[in-house]
Nucleic acid binder design. Structure first.
Length: 302
DNA sequence: AACGGGCACAACCGCGTGCTG
DNA sequence: GCAGCACGCGGTTGTGCCCGT
């Protein structure tokens, strides 16, 4: 039963009982019905007109974070997690900005994910979650792990089997991903760690991992995909282009249904940056201990 | 079965910003 | 310029569920 509080602070508003706490089904349906008929916005007025004993703020939050039809339910996919890690490394705690690039996900959801999962890992490793060390750990170990999950999922003949990813998505109503060419071209996890490079910070697009196969792709043969520097995102998503800031482009998973993607695996391999690859390898050797690597590598349930 | 701790997530709160009269 | 309002954002809290003991 939600709390009831008196709101008397606002002088131009009659004292009225305002409900707080969890929303009831009845309240939800009232809000949905009102917005369906009248649209959203003017939240304080909306709350009154809809007969809801809630603040406009509360109504807005409930609609945006829960009731809106295009909200995705269920656990974050590895692709989404990868994107969150990347975007957070670029923008920090700009949750709404990050959420803009994960269709159907809310800033609240992403914030919760970061606090409960990512920061937990940082605590366990005794690293500040906003430190450079943690960022490097994420890039060198966590992201490859997510890529491996993407690979496992896509290459599994029965994606509903008991893989870790299936467990992660068990509550999702979305269909499981099907085969994708880039994931199946990935190598074993241990090799993968050293075959992932990261563009530098001043890249025009976000710093996303680029995957290459060292024995099959020479630099000179590298296909030019200037608008698609991020192999995983190229493989799984579509380009997001910010018209207000044309340099602000990247890739995003726009659908759980991977059958919609039929991309050339060669052109999906992205760019090769020898220096950043070296940096990653050096970081590996410099400070990330074997136990830490194991810890990060074995991060299940992420 | 009961209990307690941890976790995930929904919801709230405070503050900043932009718009309008 | 200023006050009031609406809205958005990020941090924090509350609560229900799960799992181990």
């Amino acid at each position: 039963m939600p709390n009831v509080t008196k709101k008397v602070s606002n002088s131009n508003e009659d004292p009225m009982e305002l409900r707080r706490g969890p929303w009831t089904l009845e309240e939800d349906s009232m809000l949905i019905h009102y917005i369906a008929c009248n649209g959203e916005g003017r939240w304080n007025l909306l709350a009154k007109c809809a007969g809801l004993k809630r603040t406009g703020k509360s109504c807005r939050l409930r609609w945006l974070n829960y009731l809106k039809p295009d909200i995705k339910r269920g656990n974050l996919t590895p692709q989404e997690q990868l994107l969150i890690l990347e975007l957070h490394s670029k923008w920090g705690n700009r949750w709404s900005k990050i959420a803009q690039h994960l269709p159907g996900r809310t800033d609240n959801e992403i914030k919760n994910y970061w606090r409960t999962r990512v920061q937990k890992q940082a605590r366990q490793l005794n690293i500040e979650s906003n430190s450079k060390r943690f960022l490097e750990a994420v890039r060198c170990f966590w992201m490859p792990r997510l890529l491996q999950k993407m690979e496992q999922t896509s290459s599994s003949p029965d994606s509903t089997s008991n893989s870790s990813l299936t467990t992660m998505n068990s509550q999702s109503s979305a269909p499981p991903p099907s085969h994708n060419p880039i994931a199946s071209s990935l190598v074993s996890p241990s090799t993968l760690i050293h075959n992932i490079s990261y563009p530098t910070e001043n890249s025009s697009c976000i710093t996303s991992p680029s995957v290459h196969s060292s024995d099959s792709l020479k630099i000179s043969e590298q296909p030019q995909v200037p608008q698609h520097p991020a192999a995983p995102f190229y493989a799984f998503g579509t380009t997001v282009y910010n018209h207000q800031n044309p340099t602000d482009c990247y890739f995003v998973d726009t659908s759980y249904n991977m059958e919609s993607f039929n991309l050339d695996p060669i052109s999906a391999m992205g760019t090769y940056d020898e220096n950043t690859l070296l940096d990653c390898q050096m970081a590996d050797g410099d400070w990330i201990s074997d136990s830490m690597a194991d810890s990060l590598w074995n991060m299940n349930g992420m």
